[in-house]
């Protein structure tokens, strides 16, 4: 069976050649993955596998959104951070931003 990431030869629409600059949060996710790889805490192969194994509604998202989802799965798998910890920290960051502190 042809898996979702393995798309060579699949029908698809025209290529849109413009490319907006990479957003700061997307660079931060990329840098975080880079640092974890540098420390040998994960491999690029594990990252690819985590991407491929995402539910299709997540795989079909923007590239860096997909990376963020795969990274959170790998962090949990490796015991580095749980989905619960990340979710509650996100709430905390949001409150901090809204409170302006």
């Amino acid at each position: 069976m042809q898996r979702q990431h393995d798309m060579g030869g699949m029908p698809a629409g025209p290529v849109e050649p413009d490319s907006p600059p990479t957003k700061p949060w997307a660079k931060l996710i990329t840098a975080t993955v880079g640092a974890l790889r540098e420390k040998k805490l994960m491999t690029v192969d594990e990252m690819r596998r985590a991407l491929e194994d995402l539910p299709s509604e997540q795989y079909d998202r923007d590239y860096f959104e997909r990376w963020a989802e795969a990274l959170t799965d790998l962090l949990e798998e490796k015991g580095l951070a749980t989905h619960g910890e990340i979710a509650s920290r996100m709430d905390e960051v949001r409150r901090r931003l809204e409170g302006g502190t």
Partner: peptide, 27 residues
């Protein structure tokens, strides 16, 4: 996803998994 990126970085730094310098070098 902006919140997620910040949350992950903060958690990993606090836990001592990566340092801010290591992230900065990557950026």
């Amino acid at each position: 996803y902006e919140l997620m990126a910040t949350a992950i970085r903060e958690l990993l730094v606090e836990k001592g998994v990566v340092t801010p310098e290591q992230i900065r070098e990557q950026l």
